[in-house]
Design a protein around this nucleic acid. Structure first.
Length: 278
DNA sequence: ATGCCTTATTTCATAAGA
């Protein structure tokens, strides 16, 4: 079984490249992030013509995740129990849009950042972890809260499923080796100890970080900024991860970052991570 | 060995990404 995860940065803008990539890489299960469209407007017909069933979970302009599977798609979960949500406040006089966590969870607006399903005997999740923006912002606190709730939800899931894989854009680089220059990221999100601890807390559930092989260079980066020729200079980060249960980790026959998908005209800023399971 | 930001929407400006 070939399992893949890819932050496509708009499934509409990326559709030609997505279809081309599916046809070429032939994954059985695909986790997509940042589909940036609604559940109803996901291009299920086009993807379906390639043999995939679709579980989309979208909200519109931002976020949105999806699962594609050619090996079955059952028991779909949109979001997870205890998932924190956000409610926005209007922009202030400086034009700074400021969002605050509301005390009353029922008043918060949910975000489409997680979809799970059972595909070919494996419980698979496509995740888009909040960015956090800056360590001082409410978005960062939200990110950590989101991770904590995810951990609790996964603890419950792991009691039900031996074959389990959580894949997606985790928006955290697990180690300094996972960013092109650690000095540049001092004081930034994605590398802070609490964020890395949140990943460690997930691994403490028994999950293994399936580290892919880079197709080129020493680092299996999965994201390169669009600006300043970052991809050409390999100024990247490894933030798209596959966290596998022992039963799935034991089946890993290979894993790689498909950096070819980051080249050429109109790419996403992320590359797919592909994992082959025996 | 690759191309110097991109996306969707509140569209000719803004918010967000990481």
């Amino acid at each position: 079984m070939r399992l893949a995860t890819w932050n496509v940065n708009s499934v509409k803008a990326r559709l030609p490249r997505l279809l081309e990539w599916l046809d070429e890489a032939k994954p059985d299960v695909v986790c997509l992030q940042e589909i940036k469209t609604t559940t109803a407007l996901f291009p299920a017909v086009e993807v379906g013509e390639l043999g995939y069933e679709v579980a989309a979970h979208g909200e519109g302009r931002w976020n949105g995740v999806a699962l594609l599977s050619s090996v079955g798609l059952e028991d779909i979960s949109r979001g997870f129990p205890g998932q924190p949500s956000y409610a926005g406040e209007p922009s202030d006089a400086d034009g700074q849009a400021e969002l605050t966590l509301l005390d009353e969870p029922e008043l918060r607006t949910p975000e489409a950042r997680a979809v799970g399903a059972t595909c070919g005997g494996v419980r698979v999740w496509s995740l888009y972890v909040p960015n956090g923006r800056t360590p001082e912002s409410a978005h960062y606190a939200y990110k950590l809260e989101w991770f904590a709730a995810l951990r609790a939800a996964f603890a419950a899931e792991l009691g039900l499923y031996d074959q389990f894989a959580a894949c997606g854009d985790f928006n955290v680089a697990p180690t300094d080796d996972d960013v092109w220059n650690p000095k540049v990221f001092i004081g930034s999100t994605h590398v802070t100890p609490p964020e890395r601890q949140a990943l460690a807390d997930l691994r403490a559930l028994g999950l293994t970080d399936v580290i892919p092989k880079p197709m080129k260079g020493p680092h299996p980066f999965t994201y390169w900024d669009y600006r300043a020729g970052a991809f050409a200079k390999d100024m990247g980060m490894r933030i798209d991860l596959v966290y596998a249960s022992p039963a799935v980790a034991g089946r890993v026959a290979g894993a790689y970052v498909d950096r070819e998908a980051r080249k050429g005209k109109g790419p996403s800023d992320h590359a797919p991570v592909v994992v082959d399971l025996d």
